[in-house]
Computed example of a mutant assay.
Amino acid sequence: MAKSLPPLTWFRAFEAAARQLNFTAAAQELGMTQSAVSQHVKALETRLGVTLFLRRARGLSLTDEGRMLLPQVGSALETLADAARGFEAGPTKNLLTIASSVSVAEWVIAPHLAEFKARMPDLRLRFVGTIWPDDYNTVRADVEIPFGSRSQVGRAGIMLEPGGLIALKAPGLRGPLEDLPLIESVGTSDGWSKWRDVVGPVLQPEIFVDSYGAALHMAAQGNGVALVSALLAQNALSSGQLVRASPASLQSTEGYFLRITPDVPGAEAFRDWLLERLADAPDIGSVQG
Rank of each mutant, 00 (worst) to 15 (best):
M1L: 10
M1H: 08
L5T: 14
L5E: 14
T9Y: 02
T9F: 04
W10A: 10
R12N: 04
A13S: 14
F14V: 02
E15W: 11
A18H: 04
Q20P: 00
A25F: 01
A26N: 02
A27L: 00
Q28R: 13
S38T: 14
V41C: 13
V50Y: 10
V50W: 05
V50S: 09
T51N: 11
T51M: 02
T51C: 04
L52K: 05
F53K: 06
A57S: 12
A57N: 12
L60W: 06
L60Q: 06
G66M: 01
G66W: 01
L69Y: 06
L69R: 05
L69A: 09
L70N: 01
V73T: 14
S75E: 15
T79M: 11
D82I: 04
A83D: 10
G90Q: 13
L95S: 05
L96D: 09
I98L: 03
I98E: 01
E106V: 08
I109D: 01
H112N: 08
E115P: 03
M120K: 10
M120V: 08
R126G: 12
I131G: 09
D135K: 11
D135C: 10
V139C: 13
V139I: 13
R140K: 15
A141Y: 03
E144Y: 00
E144R: 15
F147I: 05
S151I: 09
Q152V: 10
A156S: 15
A156I: 13
G157T: 09
E161D: 13
A167Y: 07
L168Q: 06
L173T: 05
R174Y: 03
R174E: 15
P176K: 04
P181S: 03
E184S: 03
E184N: 02
K194C: 01
R196N: 14
D197N: 14
D197P: 03
L203G: 12
Q204G: 09
Q204L: 13
A215V: 03
N223W: 01
S229P: 02
S229K: 08
S229C: 07
Q234M: 11
G240H: 08
S249F: 06
Q251Y: 13
F257T: 12
L258N: 11
L258S: 11
D263C: 04
G266S: 08
G266E: 06
A267I: 06
W273R: 08
W273F: 13
L274V: 04
A281T: 08
S286D: 13
V287R: 12
Q288G: 14
G289T: 04
